[in-house]
Nucleic acid binder design. Structure first.
Lengths: 110, 110
DNA sequence: CGTTTATTTAACCGATTGGTTGACGATTGA
DNA sequence: TCAATCGTCAACCAATCGGTTAAATAAACG
C-alpha cells in the first residue's frame, strides 16, 4: 500500500520536480511555460507534473486548451510535520508523538 | 550530479526506511536488531541502512563485530528547512503536543 | 582451535524511473 | 475551414530499486 508520504517524498527526490515547485511558488503556470526553462521534452515535464499532482503537491486545472498548474502545499506540510519529529523530540514519548501526528494529519486532510 | 537533498528525499520515500528512523529515534541499535521486526532479509535491511547512511540520516559505528546505528538528524533538518520555503508552515506545535499528552494520560487513568 | 554470530558482498530478478520519439485529440485563431 | 498550439498517450530504452539467496569476511565464544 503506497502512502501519501511515500508519494510526497518520492516526488521531492527529483531536482527537476523541486525546481518546478520553486517556479510555481512565484506564480501559477501553464504546462508549456513550466517546461520552457528545462532541457527536456514537454512530455517529460508532463510526466513530472503528473507525479507532483498525484503526490498532492500541485493542483492542475484545465481552462480551454491550457492546463494551469498551481502549488498545493497541503501534502508538503504533511511531510514537513512528519520530519519535524526528528530533531525536536528526543527519546521520550515516541509512541505518543506518533499518535499525535496522526491526529494532526487527519485533521488537516479534511 | 546527485545532491544531498536528492538523497535525503529518496531515502525518506521508502516506508521501511522511515520506520527504521523512527526506531532509531528511541535508541541506537545494532543492524541485526534493526532488522528483527521486519519481514525481510538482513541483507535487505543492510542495504536500507547504507542508503540512510549515504543520505546523512544515520551514522554507523563499528565496535567489535557489531555495527551501531544512530540517528543523525542533520540532513533531515536540512531537508526540513528546504520545505519551509513553501507555505509558511508553523513548526509542529509543541504546546498542542503537550495538551495531547495530558489528555492521553487522563484517558488512561479512567 | 573450530564454531557461532554479525554484517557485507555478489549475482541475480522483476518492477519502477526518467527520459526519448511520434502519433493523437482537443482547442484556438486566421 | 484549416493550420497551429497545448498537452497527453503509447511504445520503447537504459538505469536504478527493492528484494532474494549464497558466499565471504570478521570478531567473539567455548
Amino acid at each position: 500500500m503506497e502512502t501519501r508520504l511515500d508519494l510526497v517524498f518520492a516526488a521531492l527526490s527529483d531536482p527537476t520536480r523541486r525546481a518546478i515547485l520553486t517556479m510555481l511558488l512565484e506564480d501559477d503556470m501553464a504546462v508549456t511555460d513550466v517546461a520552457e526553462p528545462f532541457e527536456m521534452s514537454l512530455a517529460a515535464i508532463s510526466k513530472h507534473l503528473t507525479i507532483l499532482s498525484r503526490a498532492g503537491l500541485i493542483a492542475q486545472e484545465k481552462r480551454g486548451r491550457v492546463k494551469w498548474c498551481k502549488l498545493d502545499p497541503g501534502a508538503l506540510r504533511e511531510a514537513s510535520v512528519w520530519m519535524q519529529g526528528f530533531g525536536q523530540f528526543e527519546p521520550v514519548n515516541l509512541d505518543a508523538f506518533e499518535r499525535f501526528l496522526e491526529e494532526e494529519l487527519r485533521d488537516d486532510s479534511l
